[in-house]
């Protein structure tokens, strides 16, 4: 297991280096980053100064190397020392990229965790219920609802929810409050985004857990368990459910990594300052260091969740376990 983790971590690091190098060369090789950093009314002197400050007059590979070293060792700019991990300074806000990311992370993480809690409980719960009561009225109602909801979009549901609950004065505008200082405020502030975001995901989990459960219930080993006299709820939860976990964990890993990397549409719709919002803003303002930072951060999350998912497989299915 340890060997597996080490191998996968090494692979992930290689991917991150390649990804960041590619992005870096595209960003800093094409066009003049100094002009982007400087803004509209920029004198030639200013641009020259920025070139020097950011090290843009050095060859591109050296620039990339400096950027890479900065992540682990920190880096000195003319405006001061940027301590490790240093992803440079934002062109737009002149803030340290890493601290901006860290600043935005709690909002995104809260959104992801709360949303996942909602869509997992509701999605898996209704999926299991529909599978257990397959063919019944409950099954048909749940399947139809999830079909309708899965074709909905956050940018449609979001404004509707805002109109119904916020603009009508029933609730305050969604906002992020620090969990440790005010748990109730944190909960109430994010409730609406959680529910709206989860609505889209729930439908997917309902349909998937229903169909994999129905598939599993037809497995021969499930029938054997019944032939042994095990009760139907035991067979359902211990035998069929166990086999349904693999596809569910796979999808969950992908969803969580993208949610932690920033739920762009949800954050934008509800005006929450998370990583997703940061990504949108920095792309719009051509804030290259920030885009690069968000990109590497999101990619790292996807890789980490992939490793977690693969390790989880081994816990679920002994056939995957490496001896």
């Amino acid at each position: 297991m340890l060997q597996f983790l080490l191998r996968r971590t090494f692979g992930a690091v290689v991917i991150l280096v390649l990804l960041s190098a590619f992005t870096f060369f595209v960003f800093f090789g094409a066009g003049d980053p100094a002009a982007m950093s400087c803004g509209k009314n920029c004198t030639a002197d200013n641009i020259a100064l920025i070139h020097q400050n950011l090290g843009l007059d050095k060859p591109l590979p050296t620039q990339y190397w400096d950027w890479l070293v900065g992540i682990f060792a920190g880096r000195d700019y003319s405006i001061g020392h940027c301590s490790a991990p240093c992803f440079g300074y934002s062109f737009a806000t002149k803030q340290d990229v890493w601290s901006t990311l860290i600043d935005r992370l709690p909002t995104t993480a809260s959104l992801a965790i709360g949303g996942a809690a909602v869509f997992l409980t509701v999605g898996l719960g209704t999926g299991l219920l529909a599978a257990y009561k397959r063919g019944s009225l409950i099954d048909k109602v749940l399947t139809s609802i999830s079909m309708v909801l899965s074709s909905a979009q956050i940018y449609i549901l979001g404004p509707i929810a805002l109109g119904l609950f916020v603009y009508s004065g029933l609730m305050d505008s969604p906002k992020y409050v620090n969990f440790t200082s005010d748990p109730a405020g944190w909960f109430m502030g994010l409730l609406l985004p959680w529910v709206v975001m989860a609505t889209i995901f729930t439908a997917q989990y309902t349909r998937m857990s229903r169909s994999t459960m129905i598939e599993q219930l037809q497995e021969e080993h499930v029938r054997t368990a019944k032939a042994k006299g095990m009760s139907s709820s035991y067979v359902f939860l211990r035998y069929a459910w166990r086999g349904s976990l693999i596809p569910i964990v796979t999808i969950l890993g992908m969803d969580l990594s993208s949610l932690f990397g920033g739920a762009m549409i949800t954050e934008f719709t509800f005006q929450l300052a998370g990583v997703g919002r940061l990504a949108i803003d920095s792309v719009i303002t051509l804030d290259l260091p920030m885009v690069l930072g968000v990109l590497v951060f999101s990619a790292a999350l996807i890789l980490v969740f992939n490793i977690i998912v693969d390790a989880t497989y081994a816990f679920i299915d002994p056939r995957v376990r490496l001896s």
Partner: peptide, 13 residues
């Protein structure tokens, strides 16, 4: 009951 194919009739988990 003893089933035909023990590989599929026993749970892998």
């Amino acid at each position: 009951m003893i089933f035909q194919d023990a590989l599929t009739a026993l749970s892998p988990y």
